[in-house]
């Protein structure tokens, strides 16, 4: 495979690397009310943001609502983004992830009657979602980093981050003590951080 050669063409989509367009610059212009800059920012990041949201929420129609909510939040808060304190993409994905988790949890708390529509939608959308998912070229790097986690760490981290579960639910799902799930999630993320050498 020719990952290394190809990566430069597409830009490294990891949150810490420069991604094609100057996201920090676009956020800065957006913060001054520049809607055209925000449109560019949307174009540069929508697929990443929406991809994460769909991974967590699964249902297509709801994912679209969540992605829209996330971008509106990004618009409202970009006035307070400080590029010296973190990567723009990581900041944006953090906002989107929180929105997605909130949606999943509020949906679980509501009665099935209220989500009848989504039930049928989810089934219909599932396959087409997977078909359209584009596998990024730097997947190999992230996969290596994830592979550096122990199986138990990786399982706990994925249930928490992609499954949208609380650490208490992760413990219940895995049949492990409460403190253990909390520790596995943290240790797993720390190892991921150290392997990727990401910085906030």
């Amino acid at each position: 495979m020719v990952h290394m050669a190809a990566v430069g063409d597409e830009g490294d989509p990891s949150p810490t690397a420069a991604v094609g367009p100057d996201l920090a610059g676009l956020l800065g212009r957006s913060a001054r009310g520049d809607e055209a800059a925000f449109a560019e920012l949307y174009d540069a990041t929508a697929a990443r943001v929406h991809g994460l949201v769909v991974r967590v929420v699964r249902d297509r129609a709801q994912s679209e609502e969540v992605t829209q909510e996330a971008f509106l939040d990004i618009w409202r808060h970009c006035t307070r983004f400080d590029s010296s304190k973190g990567s723009p993409l990581a900041w944006m994905l953090t906002i989107a992830h929180r929105k997605a988790v909130d949606r999943v949890r509020s949906a679980e708390a509501s009665k099935a009657r209220e989500v009848t529509y989504e039930v049928t939608t989810a089934e219909r959308e599932h396959d087409s979602t997977l078909e359209k998912v584009e596998v990024r070229l730097d997947q190999e790097r992230v996969r290596r980093a994830l592979a550096s986690l122990t199986d138990t760490q990786r399982g706990a981290v994925e249930l928490a981050y992609l499954g949208g579960h609380t650490h208490t639910e992760v413990a219940a799902l895995l049949g492990i003590p409460l403190g253990t799930a909390k520790t596995r999630i943290r240790d797993g993320l720390i190892r991921l951080r150290d392997t990727l050498e990401v910085t906030a």
Binding site: S14, P15, H50, V54, Q139, L162, R193, V198, T199
Partner: peptide, 21 residues
């Protein structure tokens, strides 16, 4: 730091939202 690390977990997934969005 851990948020930045977590943000890479879904790095392999890109899904353009529908144009209407």
């Amino acid at each position: 730091e851990l948020r930045a690390a977590a943000a890479t977990i879904a790095a392999d997934v890109e899904l353009p939202p529908p144009p209407a969005l």
